[in-house]
Design a binder for these strands. Sequence first.
DNA 1: AATGAATGAGCATTCATTCAT
DNA 2: AATGAATGAATGCTCATTCAT
Lengths: 216, 216, 216, 216
Amino acid sequence: MSQYSGSESSAIEERSGPKTERGRRTLRRLLDAAAEEFGARGYHETAISSITQRAGVGLGTFYVYFKSKEEVFRALVADMGARTRHALAESTREAPNRLEAERLGIQAYLDFVRSHKALYRVVMEAQFVAPEAYREYYRTFSAAYRQQLAQAASRGEISEGQDDEVRVWALMGASTFLGLRYGVWDDGADTASVAEAASDLMINGLAPRAKNGDAS
Amino acid sequence: MSQYSGSESSAIEERSGPKTERGRRTLRRLLDAAAEEFGARGYHETAISSITQRAGVGLGTFYVYFKSKEEVFRALVADMGARTRHALAESTREAPNRLEAERLGIQAYLDFVRSHKALYRVVMEAQFVAPEAYREYYRTFSAAYRQQLAQAASRGEISEGQDDEVRVWALMGASTFLGLRYGVWDDGADTASVAEAASDLMINGLAPRAKNGDAS
Amino acid sequence: MSQYSGSESSAIEERSGPKTERGRRTLRRLLDAAAEEFGARGYHETAISSITQRAGVGLGTFYVYFKSKEEVFRALVADMGARTRHALAESTREAPNRLEAERLGIQAYLDFVRSHKALYRVVMEAQFVAPEAYREYYRTFSAAYRQQLAQAASRGEISEGQDDEVRVWALMGASTFLGLRYGVWDDGADTASVAEAASDLMINGLAPRAKNGDAS
Amino acid sequence: MSQYSGSESSAIEERSGPKTERGRRTLRRLLDAAAEEFGARGYHETAISSITQRAGVGLGTFYVYFKSKEEVFRALVADMGARTRHALAESTREAPNRLEAERLGIQAYLDFVRSHKALYRVVMEAQFVAPEAYREYYRTFSAAYRQQLAQAASRGEISEGQDDEVRVWALMGASTFLGLRYGVWDDGADTASVAEAASDLMINGLAPRAKNGDAS
DNA sequence: AATGAATGAGCATTCATTCAT
DNA sequence: AATGAATGAATGCTCATTCAT
C-alpha cells in the first residue's frame, strides 16, 4: 500500500464548518471523542451521550454539528482514509523504487495502525455500519494504488501482472490483515521485521528462489 | 489458503443437543434462518423474532436452543470456520504441489464465499460482535495454514521464507479481500481468472520476471 | 401465641392425593423443593423449572400435581400454618398457666422460625402472592389465640382487657417481628433471653413496676 | 412507636435532582404515580408503563429520573420511612410522658396507615423486593425508638426492662400488625378505641391487675 | 451556539403453561 | 405417571433524536 490521492485536508471540516473559533473547537472535541469512543467500544455500544460527555459538551450540542450518529461515523472513516493515505505517501516519498516503496509502505502502515487503533477499528466496522463509506475508502485507495503499480510496471520496476485490480486487492488485504495481527492484536512485535518478511513475500512470492549458480 | 484441521462435524450440535428428531430439525431450521438473517441484515439489525419467523417456530423456541442472540452468532462463526476449512481441504486434496494448491485454494475460496455470502458476512462481523470467536476462527485457520507451508517448504515446493506467521496472515488477508471484492461485491467476475492472477502474485511476487535471454 | 386448631394433618395431601407410593413420593419431593426454592429466592424469583430440577423430576411433572405456581405456594402456606400451630401447641401443653404459656410460646416460636426460615419467608410473602391464604393463616391463628386468652381471663390468669382481638393482633405482631429480628436475621442470639425479655413486656407492660413498699 | 430521627427532608430529592421546576414536577408526579401503582397492584404486577401513563409522561421519561424499577421502589420506601417518622414525631410532641406518647403514637400510626395504604404496602413488600431498604427502614426506626425508651426509663416513666432492642421490636411488631388489621383491612374500626386497647396492653401487659382491696 | 428534558419505537429475554408422546 | 419441546404474552430498559429555552 502506498501513495495517496483523493480528497485531502482531513476530509472533515467540509460543508460550511463552524464560523467561530469556539465552534471549531467544539467540533474537534466531538470528533476526537467520537473516534475514541467508537474505537474503544464500537459503533453500537457507543452512545451519543458518552461522546458528548467525553467531549465535555451537552447532549444537544452533538446535533448542532452532526445530523446523526452515522454521520460522525462516516466523517471519521473519511478522515481515517485521508490520514492513512497521507502517512503512506510520506513514508514512500523517498523510496528509490516501487519494491522498496512496498516495504516502506508496509512498515509505515503497521506503525500507523498501531498508533491509531481506534481509527483502524472504525474503518473495519464501517463495513457494517456505513458500507458505502467503506467501499469509498477502498475505492480511493485502490485507484491510487493501481496507478502506482501501473507506473512502476511501465518503468520496469515490477512485473506487468495479469490484473492490477486483483494485485491491488491482494496487497491491500495482506497489509490490512498484518495490520490487525501485528498492529492491533500483537503490538509488541517488531514492525520492521514483519514488514521485511511481508515485503519479501509480496515481492518474491512463495516460489522457491533460484539459487546463485542457477542461471548460468 | 487450504487444508483444514481443528474441530470438525459442523461445530454446532455440541453440548447435549436435542434428543428427538424433531428437536434436531428445529435446531437446524433456527441455525439456517439465523445465518440468512444475520447475513442479510447484520447482527444489530436482526431481531430474534425475525429469525424465529423465518424458521417457522415460536419466539420462545429460540431460547430453548440458544442462550442468547450472541450465542447463535458464535455458533454460526464456528460453523462457518469448519465449513470453510472443509471446502478448502476438499479443493486442494488433489493438488500436485503447494503452489498449485494455492491457486486451487484461492479459487475454491472465492467460489465458496460467493455461494455463502451470508456466512462470509457473519464471520467478518464477528470481529465486532464476538471478537473471541473471530480470533479463534483465524487462530485455527492460520495454524493449519502454517503447517501446510512448513511441510511444503521442507519439500522444497516453496521458499523457506522469513516468518511463516507473517506469510500466512498476508495470504489470508489477500484471499479475504479478494473474497470481498470478487466474491461478495462483484460476483460476476470469472473466479478462475482472478484466482490465476492472484496466485501469480502470491507465487511469483511483484518483482520483475527474469526474461529468457535475460541472464546473459 | 399458642394452642392451635383448624385443619390439621399437614394440610397438604388433601384432595384425592396420589394413589401410588411413587406418586406420593414425587409429591413430597416437589413440595420440599418448592419450600426450599421459594424460601431461598422468593416467589417471583423462583421458576417452576428450578423446583422440578431440585426435585429431580421433569418440568411437566409439576403440573401433574399442581394446577399452578400459586397453588403450591398456597399449599405451603397452609402447611406452614398447621406446623406452626402444632409446634406452639406442643410447647405450651405443659404450661401451668397462660402467662407461662406466653413465655414458652414465644421461645418455641423463635426456635421454630429459626429452624424453618424458608417457611417463615413463604408465609410473609403470602401477603403479596396469595393474600387470601395469608388472611386465612392469621384468621385461624387469631381465633385459636383469642380462645386461649378468653379462657385464661375467665380463670383469672390474665387481665380482662378491653378488646381481645386487639390484644391478639398486638401479640402476634410482636412475636412475628421478634421472629424476623431474632429468628431470621440474627440467628445467633439466645432465644431464651429474648423470650424472657419479650414475655416480660407482654405480661407486665412498659409501666414502671410497683416497688415493694409501694403499696401502703 | 414514636419520635423519629434519621435523615429527613422526604429522602427523595437526593443526588443532584432536577434543575428546573418542570423537572421537579415530573419527578414528583412519577413518585406519586409509582406509589399508587405499587400500592394498588404490588411491585411485580406493576409495569413501568402503567406508572408513566398514570403520571402522564412518556415511558422513557421514567428512566430520566430513575435507574430502574427497583430504584423508585427504594426511593418510595425511604420516603415512607421519613414520612412515618415525621407523622409520629408530630403526634407525640405534646405527650406529657412516654406512656401517653405510646397511646398517641399508636393511634397516629393507625391513622397514618389508613390514609397511606399504598405506602404501607410498599414498605411491607420491600421485605422481598428490596430487603436492604426494608432493614434500613427498621434500623432507623428502632434506633430512634430505643432512644425514646431509654430516656423515658431514666426519667422513671417506664420500667427499665431487660432488653430494649427486644422491647422495641415487640412494640414495632404490635403496631405494624395492628396497622394491617385495623388500618388496611378493617378501615372502619375506631382507631381511638383500638389504640386505647392496644396501649393498655403495651403499658400494663397481660397480667391480672391488682384490684383496689387486693393487697389486704 | 448550547443545552438537557422528554420521548417512544424497538428488542432481548423470561417463564408459566400446554400437550403430544 | 412422567416428560420436555414448544409457545407467546408480557415487560424492563436503551438510546437516537427533537425541541423549547
